[in-house]
Structure formats: structure tokens, C-alpha cells
Nucleic acid binder design. Structure first.
Lengths: 203, 203
DNA sequence: GTCTATATTGTGATAGAC
DNA sequence: GTCTATCACAATATAGAC
């Protein structure tokens, strides 16, 4: 028996994901989710009891995309430069495909900060391992003027912020030229990599 | 005649600013604003006709804090390193005083992107002047591996993102130790400055 | 499982007394 | 100017037929 149509539950989850990520929890509307899924409101409540309920899984999934990426990359045996390049590329590609993701995650993590540690644990992430591995790398490279924590935050900052602040960048720096913004984003992969490597090599 | 109590209008504006910045437009409640101001809902509508109306001035004021800072700094005659240090310090100090500001601005600029260019203009900011001045600086320093736009975005990223993502940083990297996060933020001023200068000096 | 119709609640906004 | 009481509407949630 071949499943030709997506199950209703799956259709709802996909529609909800789009709506929540685009508008945030407060801005999302159950009516819109129903429309996007091609069903009606009542059915949403049949599958998931409440809006809050429907939301939780979505956030977990969206946020979960951030964690394994960076863990996997930095635990491999590649040389540091390759790890860095790979991490930057996969983050930026992820956000090119999902431009609203950064704002969504930033926003909702403030609405419900206690969710974060819970998700981290359930994703099996081990930040202390990551930090330790990075400390070893820096030691070998004889880099002494930055700590692993600050370095990670710098990497994430330069990858994520340009998407979170896209309206300012497009509107102010590129005078609403969206093509210029797209090109700018493409350049970021190389620019961020070079900027970080230059900083680490210096002194 | 000495004004002992704040005017009602001022009390409302302060209360609204807090509520909007903490919860965003969709999450803010007129009832809560009234409570914070020590008055009732009806009076809000007497002074400001609508929620949208009350919001606009707040956003303009909050966002306006970003623009003049960076413009003023980079148009001075100080050497580049001093300008950079001054810009970084004043941004980070601003966010230490107003930790919710970055999330608020990021969030609302997506809810209403057309507001941004409007405010930029009314603040009298001239991005092209800033970019041109920065291009001159980089030329004199013989820096060729980064453009002014990417450099500005890098600076803003590393100053703003650590506040926007504070729950992740506190929860994941510091295992909910808020004192450790505070200290981390204090370190950022020096770390970001060094990181950027190192990158520019390299090669 | 899926629908229409309706209940319930929350919230921005207004009327009118003082 | 400030209040209480109420409206109007939107949005979540439920009842019940099919």
C-alpha cells in the first residue's frame, strides 16, 4: 500500500512550522495554520490539544538544528581550518534555506528560557567536550589571546546576526537593494572564514 | 512651581517602553502597561489613541539609540583604534543597561521592515558617509581583505549577538551560571576589540 | 477523521459619570 | 483628567452532526 498523500498530522506539522517560524508564537494564528494545511481549525485541536502543545515540538525541532551541526563538525579529525570552514558553510546554508529561523529561535528562547537546557540535554549535546576540543586546537596553534567560549560566540555571531538583522542591512547599507543583500550573504562564507583565521594567525 | 510627580504622559511612556521591550508588540498588554504606570486602561487611550500609536514612538526611540552612536564615533578625528574601541564600549554598555533591547529591535524590525528606512532618514543618518570614511581608514591601514560593509556587520554582530542569544550562552556554555555570563559580557569589550584589530593587522 | 456551528475567553477600544 | 463599566471583535477551544 503506497502512501500517496501526506498524513494530516504531517501536513499540520509542516504548516505550523512555517507559520510559527514566520510570525513567532504570539503572532501565529491557528486559522492560518489550518489554511496552510488545507484543513480547518477544529482539526488542529483534534490532533494537538492546544496552540502551546502544537508549538513545543516545532521549537524543539527548529532549535535542534543548531546543536548537532557544530558538535559533529568539531569532533571530527579534520584539520582546524577545515572544521571551521565546514561549520561556517553549513550554518550559512541552513539560514539561506530558512531565513526566518534565527529571529524565531532568538525570540522564542527569550519567551521561554527554561526550554533551552532541556532541549540541549535531550539532544545529547556536550558543550564541555566541544570547549575542551577547541581549547586543544588553540593550544596547538599557539593562540593565546582568545578563549574557546569567546571564539565560539564570535563565530556564531558573525554567521547568525546578518540574518537576524537583515532588514537593517538591506534597508540601510544597501538602500533596499535585495539582490545586493543576497550577494553580500554569499560573500559571508569566505569573509567570515578569512576574518577569523586572520585574527587567530596574528601576533 | 516645582514638579514633584512625573506627568501622567511620562509615566505611561516609561511603562510602555518597559512592557514593549520585554514582550514585543504582540506580547505586550495594554492592561499591564496601565498597571506599571499606576493608572487604568482607559487613560492610555485618552493620551494615545491606540496601541499601535503608543508603540511607534517607543520603537523609534529605542532604535534611534543605535544610529547616532556609530555615526558620531566614526566621524570624529580620533585614530581608528580609538574610534573602534569607543564604538564597541558604548554599544556594549548600552546593552548592559538595556539587555532586552537587541531582541526587541530585531523582532520588531521584522514585523515592520518599512519602519527602518523611515527612521534612519529622520535620524539624519548618512550610511554612505560612514562607509566612505571607513573605506578611507582601511586604505590607509593597507587592509585589503575585507570591505567596509562586512567589517561593520562583523562589529555589530559581535557586540549585539551575545545579548540577543543570552539564554543559549548562559544555559549551554555556562550551565546557567548567571555570574559567569555577566563576567563574560564584561570581557567582551576587550575581546572583540582585540579580535578585530588582530584580524585587520594580519597578512 | 473531518466538518459546521458555537461557546469562551482575552484584549483593544469607547461611553459616560464625576 | 481620571475613573468604572461595557462594547466589539478576534482568537482559542469545544460540541456535536456526519
Amino acid at each position: 500500500m503506497v502512501q500517496l498523500e501526506k498524513s494530516t498530522e504531517l501536513k499540520i506539522l509542516e504548516a505550523a512550522k512555517q507559520e510559527f517560524i514566520e510570525r513567532g508564537f504570539d503572532g501565529a494564528r491557528m486559522q492560518k495554520i489550518a489554511e496552510r494545511a488545507g484543513i480547518n481549525k477544529a482539526l488542529l485541536h483534534y490532533y494537538f490539544r492546544s496552540k502551546e502543545n502544537l508549538f513545543k515540538g516545532i521549537f524543539r525541532e527548529a532549535f535542534g538544528e543548531f546543536i548537532p551541526k557544530i558538535m559533529a563538525t568539531f569532533q571530527s579529525n579534520l584539520p582546524f581550518e577545515e572544521k571551521l570552514k565546514s561549520a561556517i558553510n553549513s550554518y550559512i546554508d541552513l539560514f539561506i534555506k530558512n531565513p526566518h529561523l534565527p529571529v524565531f529561535v532568538i525570540n522564542e528562547m527569550h519567551r521561554n528560557p527554561s526550554l533551552i537546557p532541556e532541549i540541549i540535554l535531550s539532544e545529547g549535546a556536550k558543550p564541555e567536550i566541544l570547549l575542551h576540543a577547541l581549547a586543544e586546537e588553540l593550544k596547538q596553534m599557539k593562540v593565546k589571546h582568545i578563549t574557546p567560549v569567546h571564539l565560539i560566540v564570535n563565530i556564531l555571531s558573525m554567521c547568525i546576526f546578518p540574518f537576524a538583522a537583515s532588514p537593517i542591512i538591506t534597508g540601510v547599507l544597501f538602500m533596499n537593494d535585495k539582490i545586493a543583500y543576497q550577494q553580500f550573504i554569499q560573500e559571508r562564507k569566505q569573509v567570515v572564514f578569512d576574518f577569523i583565521m586572520n585574527s587567530l594567525k596574528s601576533k
